[in-house]
Design a binder for these strands. Sequence first.
DNA 1: TAAATTTGTAACATATTTTATTACAGTATG
DNA 2: CATACTGTAATAAAATATGTTACAAATTTA
Lengths: 135, 135
Amino acid sequence: MISGKFAITIHILTLLHKFPNDYMSSEYIAGSINLNPVLVRKEIANLKAHHIVESKEGKNGGTKLAVNAAELTLKQIFEMTFETIGLGFAKNQPNPDCPVGKNINQHLENLYSEMNQKVSAQLEGISLEDFSNQF
Amino acid sequence: MISGKFAITIHILTLLHKFPNDYMSSEYIAGSINLNPVLVRKEIANLKAHHIVESKEGKNGGTKLAVNAAELTLKQIFEMTFETIGLGFAKNQPNPDCPVGKNINQHLENLYSEMNQKVSAQLEGISLEDFSNQF
DNA sequence: TAAATTTGTAACATATTTTATTACAGTATG
DNA sequence: CATACTGTAATAAAATATGTTACAAATTTA
């Protein structure tokens, strides 16, 4: 999962923030996202690895937020979902004997790195709580 | 082609800028990118549609820049390659009966739209000439 | 303690998107 | 007229993303 990872993760977290008292089941969350529960559990596994949520197995089990939503920024979520802003690279290694081919990827990386800084600055200013309170 | 479109297009344009006197063949360009020549011709077709390059068929034919590299911005290239900055959406339509599901995509779009503005502003300040002169 | 429910995870299947290849008609050059 | 290009369609292959099934392990509650 790459393309929907950030969107799915933020959807999960928004739901958890809206229902702070319960352990929510992956089945229920999956119903809101309209996604297979196994995929929800996979994203939750990622969130757990970053100690953003905790979950409980067994009957009446599920997942809930383990951090303060006001202190979790979209930038952190962005980074947890392994996303990087950019406009892509050509798939194959360019020709190293061509002065352009030899250096293009480095120059693209520099360009994208600047983009990331701008986007990160934007996302750092938005907390999960901010995002969730829009709903 | 999506992921490499911007990178490939800017690679093509940089080459054309470096060799302003010739009509470059798609075969030659493909050799620098290490890409199939047919795919190069497809990207060139897109550039032609935007009147950024012109090309000549037949023997000794090829493609060359049709605009002033100092006046072509990376933002224009970005837009020509149909790219939009964002962090993706879940593939399926979320549940419209859930207050979160119902509105998540709109909120994500708002967020991404802000990103686009920032990135566009950055790219608008860089011309093809600027980019090419780094090499 | 047994039944029910839920997570965690692996293995596999399907769908979608990207990239590559083949083929060939049309066009200009020398 | 032979050669070397573009333009484009059709198809194939590869890569990536998403979906499904299955089941062990954990926990609750009756």
